[in-house]
Amino acid sequence: MPIATRAFAATASDKPLAPYSFERRDPGPDDVAIAIKFAGVCHSDLHIVKNDLGNTRYPIVPGHEIAGIVTAVGANVTRFKEGDRVGVGCMVDSCRQCAPCKEGEEQYCVPGMTQTYGSPDPKGVEVGQTITQGGYSDAIVVDQNYVLSIPDSLPLDAAAPLLCAGITTYSPLKTWNVGPGSKVAVVGLGGLGHMAVKQAAAMGAEVTVLSTSDRKKADAERMGARHFLINSDKDAMKAAAEKFDLIINTVSATHEIAGHLNLLAKDGTMVMLGLSTEGMPVFAMPLLWRRRRVAGSLIGGIRETQEMLDFCAANNIACDIELIAPDRINEAYERMEKSDVRYRFVLDIEKLAA
């Protein structure tokens, strides 16, 4: 039978999120039904709710950092059983036929991955759902191939943001071969940035945090950063020239990046992770002079996401979170716009009002 689901949803770009009820599809043979216990609040949720990209379809239930417990499995499911601790990240399906999908990088699916919320949802038509609905809800049904196992040593609440923030930073660190001897700079110590610091440090890199002020310096050092650099300090920036192999840029707001390119060593790369909606000038000379690159990275595939969860468990890494009741989501959005969170809001879904 379809699963009655309670949630918080956005109904328009200029209205607060509000309680919302709908039905999830009846689990099919390949599906896993999950009771959601915790849902992380990602900055991209805010972009979608506010329709910053111009393609939001309402009503929409955000949330793609999901941690919960399996309540039922379909007849063909072999990877999970009732009672398992599981997670769901930014995607719930892909074409499975294109080259990226076959390579285990479903996030780069050529026709486009099916995102956890806001994508066309042919499987939901039977219960009146035309788009996928996300994790600010108390239940979800997902194909087993897009469900992750959360190791027992990771607290479920602090593990939830790993399904987006954790993999978004882990994937470029792995892609650019970060390890002992690597010199990594992280721009912005927020939800993504604090995960980049912890993971890069655990991989053996020498980590520097670049920020606009020193108010998070103690936090950065606690997380594993060896150095802290104020990017408005011209002398310090000049002294750090050509130092870094990799810069992980996590800032979502429009900001100056051209000056940061001089911090890269020869063949160094700045990877953009923040979902900014405006262009940022980059000049040719700093790139040409040291064969530097500006690149982008999305999340990771299912295989790499499971690898990330296992890595975090082995290295005692989890997100620093502020756990809140779902009815405080609009307050959380207001604070997130002011960067007033250390370092990720997580919704305690069991406090979702009846």
Rank of each mutant, 00 (worst) to 15 (best):
I349W: 04
V184C: 04
H260S: 08
L173H: 07
A160I: 02
R344E: 07
C319S: 15
G190H: 03
A75P: 03
L189M: 07
I140N: 04
W289Y: 15
R335W: 03
G134R: 09
I248H: 03
Q107F: 06
G300Q: 00
V271M: 00
Q199L: 06
C42V: 06
Y146Q: 03
M113G: 08
V73T: 15
I302M: 13
V141E: 04
K37N: 13
P172E: 00
V186P: 02
A159G: 00
T5H: 07
H43M: 01
L46S: 14
L273V: 03
I167A: 01
G135D: 08
V41W: 09
N330T: 05
L275P: 05
D138S: 09
A205N: 09
V70R: 04
M272T: 13
G28R: 13
T78I: 06
R25P: 01
A196K: 04
K123D: 14
A205I: 10
I299C: 10
D93R: 12
T114K: 06
N316T: 15
L264E: 01
M285I: 15
S339I: 10
A258Q: 12
K198G: 05
T132L: 09
I131C: 12
E221T: 14
H227K: 12
D93Q: 12
D143I: 11
V32Q: 00
S44W: 03
K266H: 11
S44Y: 02
K37E: 15
V88D: 01
F22D: 00
I34E: 01
G179T: 15
S21G: 14
D14W: 04
M237Y: 01
H47V: 11
V86K: 01
F38H: 13
G135K: 07
E82C: 09
N177E: 14
Q129W: 08
K174M: 15
G166P: 09
P100I: 03
V73I: 07
C101T: 05
I329F: 07
G181H: 08
A265P: 01
S149C: 08
R6L: 12
A67F: 10
D26C: 06
G191C: 10
G83T: 08
A160W: 06
D45T: 00
E256L: 06
V49Q: 10
G68W: 04
P122D: 06
A205G: 12
V178K: 01
K198Y: 10
R57C: 06
H260Q: 14
D121G: 01
A75I: 09
F38D: 05
I349V: 13
Q133I: 08
S171K: 14
G87E: 08
G190V: 00
V197W: 05
D348F: 07
A72N: 06
S149L: 09
Y20P: 03
A10D: 02
A253I: 11
Q115C: 10
V127R: 10
S276A: 14
P122G: 03
S21F: 15
I150S: 00
A12K: 10
V147I: 02
F22R: 11
K266Q: 13
D310T: 14
V178A: 05
S119V: 04
S153A: 11
V142L: 05
A241D: 13
A258N: 15
S339D: 15
E105L: 04
S252P: 13
D267H: 12
V209N: 10
V282L: 13
P326K: 09
G128C: 04
K102N: 14
D121K: 00
R292I: 08
R342M: 11
A196Y: 06
A4W: 01
D31P: 08
F38N: 03
